[in-house]
Design a protein around this nucleic acid. Structure first.
Length: 756
DNA sequence: GAGTTTGAAACT
DNA sequence: CAGTTTCAAACTC
């Protein structure tokens, strides 16, 4: 490993390096107080640019240190998998520093003033150790070290030797001792960039700082050793460079020649003022000079981690991130973007919550985001809703722009078949999201499956794939089914009991009592929510599938091993109240395909036994719901009017509203509201966040009213042929997975032609 | 290069 | 603590 010094919290290093004296004077322990353990030296990076990318991903946080990079920034080693060309031991570098120092003849007493003659970093680092091939992430700001190093071993010690701050020379809080204690200026000398900066988004965009580079540095840059962000250049006019507005001041460095500031007090001659100002600012906000982004310790030895924790208070480690609103974290206004790390809102959402959070937050602006997945996802959502007009547009799906609309229409025109329909279903199950699945579309998919369209269409490959996808969510779904079944049993026995349950649920989640807190998850609900008294659900009378998250008790119950055992137990399969009978096909050949196959089939295999009357059709509201549904699916799926018993079970049992809504009150907020999104960025489980779907803007019907046209002949044959098998429990004998169009979640229009 | 936009910092 | 103002960088033209 390359942990030499083994510390990641270099971000804290810089500032404290600069302001060590100030901290001493205040007697307050700086969260980033200088500690050589913060320094890790990795002088060599892989020459292969791809490595830089790898490193970037591994060191998203690391550039914070170098972002302002006025201090000694030593790159942290990448993961062990990343091959480094060469890693110089700290001793080697120290030795070079030592030699350089000696060669320059600098001593403490003879050290030149900061203004000039100090030991330039270029002279410190032996070029041979920084060959262009094994380029170290070392940057030279062009500023000079007025190296007042009394003892080169001190340099070595500070740079590379892990030690406590108490072991540092008492006179100096920083690496390079300065005669006049001008740590402030001197500390600008060395910048060793972290790998992350190599590929930060904007590092190539601005040939920043080039004009401040000395000829040597320019040469360095020519040899690809240099990187930007070497030093700060401010243009302060009114802040006197004594406020955090001033980048130099904020970075803990004195303004220097490159600065174009006016009335600058951030200079060595005003050191006292600078320090006093800094103390004042720190007294106001102890984290004012703390790095906003401090990388986490990864793969670090436990003791090191512990040490990090000890050194850096949580408040300093936290990711302050940004509060970007309009720039979408895609411009340099955003510090996160600037530092090349995905800590911005969009990035955070993408990383944490998948696409929906991004879409929720950015709405139509999602098209502007540099997140292709988000756009593709929106396309898919719209495609689905248009393709299958009973499915409401996801409440947070932004309206497509004209180009997108045209694109979608084109896709639809080419894919009005059942295969495409199934594909669209698949898209929205699991694989489309970074989260395991999106409850919203899982429910929609279940809804559709309950309608038997897919089953009747009988596109083996599609079904197989569908089941495969379902396998990922099967456990949860199965639990839902089981719970639903249980609930239904109770419902059949006693409505009073259900009322009691509802009451209990309401007690736990009072917001559930309010009809507005019902989820718009199902078409039927959507329609009813749109003022239509008669639900149009494809599966009438289905109630809302409760999410395991909807009720903590339910969740815990469902996830109990007992529930699962019960669900899978043979007894359960073969006996019991018919109303809650679940059809299992444990022995079907499909087992060979997947361990979960039987259970998958449980979901998909929903054909009711003929003798059993459909609870759906018999239910009070079922008949009407069907009437208004689209003809195609009704006829296609359940021409006899019967419905899947499982579907019935699924949707009829518990009156508990489906899908917990995060913080009930928030549910009612406008999806465009920033406040609404705030909850998405906390530590709420992603699945809960994903289920956080506002009611507003639900679209009940397809804009184009385009419907799939199932292969009727084929469908007919399948029905007649497969019906016995279905009755006997042999269904979905998917013999092969034919070449199926790519269902890449982030599909593009190309897939439309591929499946034809 | 001037003017605008943006988000952080500072202020009230 | 929320809202407003100030500020300087980023951005646009």
């Amino acid at each position: 490993m390359l942990y030499e010094g083994g510390q990641n919290q270099r971000g804290t290093l810089r500032r404290c390096l600069q302001f060590a004296e100030a901290n001493r004077s205040t007697g307050r322990r700086c969260f980033g107080s200088w500690d050589p353990t913060n320094i890790t030296l990795s002088s060599h990076l892989p020459e292969n640019p791809s490595y830089a990318n790898i490193l970037e991903s591994s060191y998203l946080e690391s550039s914070a240190i170098s972002s302002n990079s006025q201090a000694v920034i030593l790159s942290e080693p990448p993961t062990s998998q990343v091959p480094l060309c060469m890693v110089k031991s700290p001793e080697v570098h120290a030795d070079k520093v030592d030699r350089s120092l000696r060669n320059n003849g600098n001593s403490l007493t003879t050290a030149p003033r900061p203004s000039g003659i100090g030991l330039h970093l270029n002279s410190i680092v032996n070029p041979t150790t920084m060959s262009s091939n094994a380029t170290p992430r070392m940057k030279f700001t062009g500023k000079k070290i007025s190296c007042a190093q009394r003892d080169t071993s001190a340099v070595e010690h500070h740079l590379f030797v892990k030690s406590s701050s108490s072991s540092l020379p008492t006179n100096f809080g920083v690496t390079f001792e300065v005669e006049n204690n001008d740590y402030y200026q001197e500390s600008q000398a060395i910048v060793m960039e972290s790998p992350a900066n190599f590929s930060s988004p904007q590092e190539n965009a601005d040939g920043l700082e080039e004009n401040q580079l000395s000829p040597k540095n320019k040469r360095k840059k020519t040899s690809n050793i240099m990187e930007n962000e070497g030093c700060k250049r401010c243009n302060c006019k009114r802040s006197k460079c004594l406020k955090l507005y001033c980048e130099c001041f904020a970075a803990g460095i004195y303004c220097a020649e490159p600065c174009a500031c006016q009335e600058c007090f951030n200079k060595p001659e005003y050191k006292d003022m600078v320090l006093a100002t800094r103390q004042q600012i720190e007294s106001r906000n102890p984290l004012a000079f703390a790095p906003k982004i401090v990388r986490r310790v990864i793969e670090s030895p436990a003791d090191k981690v512990e040490e990090v924790s000890r050194m850096t208070p949580s408040s300093a480690r936290h990711k302050r991130g940004c509060n970007c609103k309009k720039s979408m974290c895609l411009k340099k206004y955003c510090e996160c973007f600037q530092k090349g790390r995905r800590t911005g809102v969009a990035s955070k959402l993408l990383r944490k919550s998948g696409l929906y959070c991004i879409i929720r937050r950015y709405g139509e602006n999602v098209y502007k985001l540099d997140i292709p997945e988000a756009r593709s996802h929106v396309v898919n959502v719209i495609l689905l809703t248009r393709f299958y007009s009973d499915i409401p547009l996801h409440p947070v799906t932004p309206a497509p722009d004209a180009a997108l609309t045209s694109e979608i229409d084109e896709i639809l025109d080419s894919r009005l078949d059942a295969t495409g329909y199934v594909e669209f279903l698949l898209i929205f199950i699991g694989k489309s999201y970074q989260t395991p699945y999106d409850p919203y579309y899982v429910r929609l998919a279940l809804d559709v499956l309950m309608d038997a369209d897919v089953r009747d269409v009988k596109i083996p490959s599609a079904l197989k794939k569908l089941e495969i996808y379902f396998s990922e969510v099967y456990r949860e779904v199965a639990e839902m089914v089981y719970k639903r079944t249980e609930s239904e049993s109770r419902e059949d026995q006693s409505y009073a009991k259900l009322d009691m349950m509802e009451e209990r649920s309401s007690f736990i989640h009072p917001e559930k009592c309010h009809p507005h807190h019902l989820s718009p998850l199902t078409p039927s609900f959507q329609r009813s929510s749109h003022g239509k008294d008669v639900p149009k659900s494809r599966v009438p009378a289905r109630r809302y599938l409760p999410s395991p998250e909807s009720d903590p008790n339910l969740l815990s119950n469902m996830r109990s091993s007992k529930s699962l055992r019960h669900l899978n137990s043979p007894e359960r399969r073969t006996t019991g109240d018919e109303s809650k009978e679940l059809i299992y096909y444990r022995d079907m050949e499909l087992d060979q395909f997947s361990p979960k196959w039987d259970r998958l089939s449980d979901i998909c295999d929903l054909t009711p036994t003929p003798h059993r009357p459909s609870k759906v059709t018999n239910s009070s509201s079922s008949s009407n719901t069907r009437e208004n549904s689209k003809v195609s699916r009704v006829q296609m799926s359940c021409g006899s009017g019967s419905h899947s018993p499982l579907g019935s079970l699924l949707w009829r049992s518990s009156p508990i509203p489906p899908m917990p809504r995060l913080g009930g009150t928030k549910l009612q907020k406008d999806p465009d509201s920033e406040a609404m999104y705030e909850g998405l960025e906390d530590d709420t489980p992603e699945i809960l966040k994903e289920s956080f779907t506002p009611i507003k803007s639900v679209k009940a019907s397809s804009p184009n009213q385009k419907r799939i046209s199932p292969p009727h002949n084929h469908l007919h044959d399948l029905r007649s042929n497969s019906s016995p098998g279905l009755k006997s429990g042999r269904k979905f004998v998917l013999q092969s997975i034919s070449s199926f169009p790519s269902l890449t979640p982030y599909s593009d229009p190309k897939f439309s032609s591929s499946s034809k």
